[in-house]
Design a binder for these strands. Structure first.
Lengths: 207, 207
DNA sequence: AAAGTTACTGACATAGATGTCAGCAACTAA
DNA sequence: TTAGTTGCTGACATCTATGTCAGTAACTTT
């Protein structure tokens, strides 16, 4: 048997997803700026010019990826709202779990990193991400806190605080993983627990 | 008087600094990846080829900038150690002030953003930044906390916590300013106060 | 099985950034 | 003033990534 490997395949429906997956690996390793269509094509195992049949530019691939993460966000926010009846510590810990799972994942992390890197050059995407992803998550956290205040669990003082402070360590952790983790590992679970403990209790000893 | 503007100037000693300043603006606006030697030169008001007399590559310019911020870090750490005798809240607030001032500045912020963007492509710089900048700051914060624990001000539980959690909101704020601030401003002072309040007190109401 | 459709590819042309180098202009010293 | 030094520049060659397009191979239909 000669066993000549098929030189080409035709897979119109699968291509977009394959290209995005390949692009993520390329963006992650090289950074968006140094990534090329040729590099993405190679990882996807197709010819460079094939990509143009589906996406016009690198930016278009990235945009498609971001738009795809809108539904993921909706799921996460829904997950936060579900079973939000426990005490604040429990509910918040669950919310933080969901956020970390997303941001620590390759997809969420690379999107975040790429937005930081190239955001100034793509104002439309920045706006989209802000409106469809970040503000949804922010509102969900705000709701949790408001519930806690009404419960009497949380001090009223924190109503005026910028909600972003409470989630910031998660973003920090996601970026750390992509940049310093190889030379200086970060224990995600320990960090996550410290995060939750900080937000609920703070550092000062309670009398 | 004819007042013909001088076509060229010769300023060997000032050039490196001028180039770095111009490069920062270029990196900030275009992102490191889209920045070019031509763009930097234009901002510096010199010919593109002149840059090569001082720096071989874009990366070399960025590296010089990072190395320059080592002494800034030393100053900051020294500033934290100075007058570290007040109660924890006061001392920590002063430390956070110094960190924000640095990270919110154009120089500190652009370095941070660029490292996030291009770090995977420059492992040496990542290592350098980690060792000479981040770990210095981390150690300083850790010292503050240890003092608080010994004082009895802080609960012993937080000794095991990852120190990076306590500073993470500052990094978040620095990046937010560079990315989302135009479409969704962040009130730095309010954010900073919320940060300090969170780290000291947490959210849960104190009995 | 033959004709028709189309996903895919290699080859070409273009644009933009890089790096080099000989020559010029600005400064210095005598 | 003049000769010497050197910081600076424009022009050239190279290299890399992009985008297009006609042709080919794989699949579909009849």
């Amino acid at each position: 048997m000669t066993n000549t490997a098929p030189t080409r395949k035709r897979r119109k429906d699968d291509r977009p997803g394959e290209i995005i997956t390949a692009a993520f690996r390329e963006f992650d390793e090289k950074g968006f700026g140094r990534s090329t269509m040729a590099g993405i094509a190679e990882r996807a195992g197709i010819s460079r010019t094939t990509i143009y049949l589906y996406y016009d530019t690198k930016e278009a691939i990235f945009e498609a990826a971001i738009r795809g993460s809108v539904e993921v966000t909706i799921d996460i926010v829904a997950g936060m709202a579900k079973d939000a009846n426990g005490d604040f510590r429990t509910v918040f810990a669950r919310a933080i779990d969901l956020i970390y799972a997303r941001l620590v994942s390759d997809e969420g992390g690379v999107i975040l990193k790429t937005l930081v890197a190239e955001g100034s050059a793509m104002p439309d995407l920045i706006l989209f991400y802000r409106q469809e992803i970040l503000s949804k998550g922010e509102a969900a956290i705000r709701a949790l806190i408001e519930r806690g205040i009404i419960n009497g669990e949380l001090s009223v003082a924190c109503r005026g605080d910028d909600v972003r402070v409470f989630v910031a360590p998660a973003i920090f952790a996601a970026l750390w993983l992509r940049i310093f983790h190889k030379i200086d590992p970060l224990d995600i679970n320990a960090f996550k627990e410290a995060h939750v403990r900080l937000v609920t209790d703070g550092l000062l000893a309670r009398p």
